[in-house]
Design a protein around this nucleic acid. Structure first.
Lengths: 314, 314
DNA sequence: GGCGTTATATTACTTTGCGTTATGAAAATG
DNA sequence: CATTTTCATAACGCAAAGTAATATAACGCC
């Protein structure tokens, strides 16, 4: 017994006649007539009362029609799912990236994206360049978010630059150092440092940044945590750390952080979005890419604007 | 998008491969392979990760497979329904008959039948010869239960005789008359009568029976009710009425009734089962017919047996 | 009851798609 | 790197579904 036939039966019963049913199914009347004949033959019993003009189903016919109707509903659901998937309104995006930036900037943007695309399901994970590229290649990840130097972009990948990778020294708002105009090496010296995970690019950034401003020896009193723990420790102490400015800017209200007005060496990298150069990417991915690009462009503009204001004031 | 294809997809995902899936579906591997290709083409997206040997579904493929699996479950349900219908274990039987006999004898037998055929649904109604035959003819009834004289059997109907239509005078057990050996006309005279609905054959039976034993004028103190109300009134008073003996016999424990040992004229009729001479009757009907015939034959035997015992004693 | 209208069944024929076997290609396995 | 396993493709026959044209049956209406 074919599901298709049950659906046809259901439509005929619903519409109350072969002719109307055939019309609703965009088929000819003889076609559905024969389908019913075939079905009756296979079932071995009449599905419609014989010799009745307003074609009325038998009990068995009505029961089968109910099942057919439920099958049809599921089929419709499948069609709608495909439709939404095609439009990028449904599906699954597996996104991986460097922990601090994912937590500090992307999470909020993903939330905003889901306000417009409710049925897109995100699977977020963390990682650095090598693992991310591997995962992108073997298809366990749909896109990666990470800081990258142009020379590091793999041949088989597309990199969309989102934000300049500028780092800053971050501290709690109200930190003693924020009250000073010019900050010297000696001013910084007393405060302990929070370090990101030792295998992260940000950790190397921290080292190089401190070297660049002359700090040779620094005391680390917290390391290895995620952004949430770093932010908490930072907000509850006078510790310092190095963070992407975008992260500080985006989360400063919630985390009570601010950036010290101290130029530190920043690596020549761009925070951006890495995806395989595939043709068969999930439709939702395209939407997400343009959405994130727009959000980050907006964020960059707000950062620029604030810097101009600060410069004028200072 | 065809439900059939979704079912195939579901099976492949469930079994974890084209080969196993094809086997489970009793099809060849190339066949299901092409079905999936076609489905992917129509959907416009990959349903399985490309270039993977233990064929793994994509997110979309898995979602569609879940729907396909539910469709398959419904299809299976439909097949099982048909199967049970064929075996007479499912379906609907619309049964109509004369009220007293339906309530007094048939209802208990239907209950017993349903112990063996749980999914057979009964729609019971009441009526007399004319309406019943009409309903059988226009297909709003599957079978009728009624008393019938052989000459009354319509040409296009089959009549299965179940019980002799013998009537008795019924009263509550413990009624004053039950203590007498021989009952005379004068004994009966003081008691009021309960009459069945005036349009019922039983009402005419009552009249003729009383005339036959010489009662010319009788007092009716209750009429028109169903068997339940007749039985209640009978049990709660010293009234008399005329009932088929099978009804009294079958329900005497529950209703506290008994029959007076008084021969009354009984019409030359058989209580039986009337069905149209159709070829396409519901399979459950055949089962029901033989079941009821057996039950009634059994009932008749028990009645016969009791009569012999009573005769010997008296 | 005969008659027109309407709905369904039937017929004849074409096309589509599903089934098969045989065979090739690609990925995993050792 | 060879072997095995698993999937994709090709070629072809057949069942079934599509069509238009037409016959037939049920219903309603004088």
């Amino acid at each position: 017994m074919e599901s298709e036939h049950l659906e046809i039966l259901a439509m005929i019963v619903e519409k109350g006649g072969l002719t109307e049913g055939a019309e609703a199914l965009h088929k000819s009347q003889p076609s559905v007539s024969r389908t019913i004949s075939l079905l009756e033959q296979r079932v071995g019993a009449a599905l419609f009362e014989p010799g009745r003009r307003p074609l009325r189903p038998t009990e068995l016919g009505a029961s089968l029609a109910r099942l057919g109707s439920r099958i049809h509903a599921l089929n419709t659901e499948a069609r709608q799912l495909v439709e939404r998937y095609r439009k990028g309104q449904a599906g699954r995006l597996r996104i991986g990236g460097t922990p601090i930036f994912m937590d500090g900037v992307m999470a909020a943007m993903i939330a905003e994206f889901q306000n417009h695309h409710q049925d897109v399901h995100f699977e977020q994970s963390y990682g650095y360049l090598e693992t991310l590229v591997t995962q992108l290649r073997n298809g366990t990840l749909d896109l990666a978010i990470l800081p990258l130097h142009p020379s590091q972009i793999p041949q088989d990948m597309e990199f969309i630059s989102l934000l300049t990778g500028r780092n800053v020294i971050a501290c709690r708002s109200g930190h003693p150092l924020t009250r000073k105009g010019m900050i010297t090496l000696a001013d910084i010296e007393p405060f302990p440092w929070i370090a990101p995970p030792a295998d992260s690019p940000l950790y190397r950034d921290l080292q190089r940044a401190l070297v660049s401003i002359g700090v040779e020896d620094f005391r680390v009193n917290f390391s290895g945590g995620t952004f949430a723990s770093i932010a908490s420790v930072l907000a509850g102490s006078d510790s310092l750390t190095v963070l992407p400015y975008s992260v500080v800017f985006q989360t400063r209200k919630m985390t009570q952080l601010e950036a010290l007005p101290l130029k530190i060496e920043h690596p020549n990298r761009q925070l951006g979005l890495l995806v395989p150069k595939e043709q068969a990417a999930a439709p939702a991915l395209a939407h997400f890419k343009t959405f994130i690009a727009a959000q980050c462009s907006n964020l960059e503009a707000r950062i620029q604007h604030e810097q101009q204001v600060t410069r004028r004031r200072g």
